[in-house]
Design a protein around this nucleic acid. Structure first.
Lengths: 139, 139
DNA sequence: GTGTTTGCAAAGTGTTTGCAATTTA
DNA sequence: TAAATTGCAAACACTTTGCAAACAC
């Protein structure tokens, strides 16, 4: 999902998810996926897009993020009320959340050993397992 | 935390947490802690209080829930944007969250084996570890 | 051309706040 | 009586929606 440099690749990347490569989606995809994994909020991404000279409305950023999420290109993470984080690392992994700085950090899945999860009820399927290590600063 | 029947016990219970036993807090504490563990939202608790004939404002319900949370009488759980759950089970345990019904269910801590959590950075302390098993209904 | 996507502004949701009136100790 | 608590209404932060205009194919 990294190194999407040439625009043609970003276009194919979006097309592969059934999304029309519009100017806005192209710019947002580049910001999100062209480089290291990131944890962004809609507001942050919106600000970055404007800064990069791509006029996008906040509503469109939300639309795009949800479309990317639905397409499996990223993951929505909820750790506090009233704020969604979008994680461009869509492989299985977990998080540290600093409740003071409100910062999210990845924990590699392989590092954690998690067993003994209960059987889920008939007619249900596991959508995801999240481990969130919540930390605070010592005063 | 259960079977608080006599009001005198609820009063002591609140006093023990440094909270004045006001009519509203007494009623809310009874609804929350007198019986089985519960997962409630502020709105649900508010509705229940009104139904029980105790006129409380929603703002006061929020105040009380946060005070109870701060006092360690319950735990706030965030699993989706824009909605807080308050869990009257304040012992260490985890959750199943049904993304369709938006229902929370407890997983006993002893049932899960979780090791390999990373060291946290200098100057930080663990506030909590949450495991959330997200499930969906099959269609 | 047809269907999709955008952007704006407005509405929505759950939560928090300010402050005067009330209640508790 | 002094300090804490309540309730209202207004403010808040973030997100979603409706719909006409713009765009992709």
């Amino acid at each position: 999902m990294k190194k999407l440099r040439p625009y043609s690749q970003v276009i194919d990347f979006l097309r592969g998810s059934g999304l029309r490569p519009t100017r806005q989606r192209l710019a947002l995809a580049k910001l999100l996926f062209d480089g290291d994994h990131r944890h962004v909020t809609a507001e942050i991404l919106h600000a970055e897009a404007l800064e990069a000279g791509v006029p996008v409305s906040l509503a469109t950023v939300y639309n795009a993020l949800h479309q990317f999420n639905k397409a499996g290109l990223l993951r929505e993470i909820v750790v506090e009320v009233g704020r969604s984080y979008f994680d461009t690392n869509n492989s299985y992994h977990h998080h540290i959340f600093n409740e003071d700085s409100r910062e999210l950090t990845d924990i590699e899945a392989g590092q954690i050993n998690l067993t003994g999860l209960p059987e889920i009820a008939e007619g249900q399927k596991v959508s995801r397992v999240d481990v969130i290590l919540r930390v605070k600063n010592n005063n």
